[in-house]
Design a protein around this nucleic acid. Sequence first.
DNA 1: TCCCAAAGTCGACCGCGGTCGAGATTTGCG
DNA 2: CGCAAATCTCGACCGCGGTCGACTTTGGGA
Lengths: 207, 207
Amino acid sequence: MSGVRAAKKEETRRAILKAAVELFGEKGFEGTSIEDLARAAGVGKGTVYGYFQDKNEIFLAFCEEEIDYAFAALAERSDSDAPLLEQLMTLFMTQFRYVTENREFGRHLVREMAFPRPVDAHKSKDLDARYLEAVGEILDRGKKRGELREGCDLFLTTVHFYSLYLVALSGFYSGYVDTAEEVEVSLRELLRQALEGLGAQSVRSEA
Amino acid sequence: MSGVRAAKKEETRRAILKAAVELFGEKGFEGTSIEDLARAAGVGKGTVYGYFQDKNEIFLAFCEEEIDYAFAALAERSDSDAPLLEQLMTLFMTQFRYVTENREFGRHLVREMAFPRPVDAHKSKDLDARYLEAVGEILDRGKKRGELREGCDLFLTTVHFYSLYLVALSGFYSGYVDTAEEVEVSLRELLRQALEGLGAQSVRSEA
DNA sequence: TCCCAAAGTCGACCGCGGTCGAGATTTGCG
DNA sequence: CGCAAATCTCGACCGCGGTCGACTTTGGGA
């Protein structure tokens, strides 16, 4: 039976992840040691590394599970008939509130997602993709309703809006804005800028 | 003479920083240990912590020195009469090429600048400020020449363009774009989007 | 000049993330 | 079933960043 070993492997993996959910939530990422996780999962320290390449990979796996909740919360609040800008704000602010619920957790996540180490690039790209996809869907609907310019590269447009979310997070972590409310005000203005354009009127008529 | 001690302190600080410039450049940030720095600077390991709070602070001090070169290189290439978009491209691409010259160095820097730990927030804000200032100056000139909309909040506009630079770096580190040339193409398009606006024409005329 | 409090120096030490090879366990085959 | 090869488990071990308290140096007032 080759299934015995495989089942056990999966079981152990889940045990480690469960320990991660508990301990990361309780003591934070940096406050939780690999040995803590191993002990809680009932395995030896070295065994952990048979399931995850490094601590970051555990974190990202943890995030993938957690982020589901954020998207679930989003599904409740989102209104696919609302104006484009409002839909984006709902998406971004829901994610913002969730991600910054624990400051350290959010910082680590956004660092990994925006500027991953090569080792973690694949995992973090998966997470990135979920965000970009969510933005892309909103833009798709917006485009069909004529809220977006014709002829805009949809991917780059997606990236554009996503970048404004990133910089909002950056402002939060750099101390330019302290509360979710302030972030909301700034982010809305940034999105408005993106939609209306920053160049003088003459520039547009040339296009 | 209280100056003797102060002079020695400054001398030691410089020695550590000099060691950092050499060793970080040679073996990278993570490849250089505090003990390496201490030995190269001719002091004990513990002494280093009398001059810098942690390894990151050494890194940021190192960056402040290094970034001067990047801005110096920029001064040569920049043309304050060129179109706004070209000036921004020159700024961003000069910085991009410099910062990503060593991949790990650039990743660490941009992580610290965009999403700093509270301990390093002040230092990283100094660096941020230099970038924002540089962008702000370009926008100032652009605004005076009528290349920018009237009534735009200048700071938020600065942040907007800066965010597109950040996301370009993010794309590079996430593996969406591999070379400086590809980054240049994408970034230029993003800037163009920002200037012309992403919303449909009707949105603009309402404004 | 002497003396002692204050400031500075140092490396042993701690807990961490990650490695490694010895030993235990499972698997597939005759 | 027997047994060897393949796989998995584990904690001692390494080097790291950072701390700490014992030790040395400095400087100004009596």
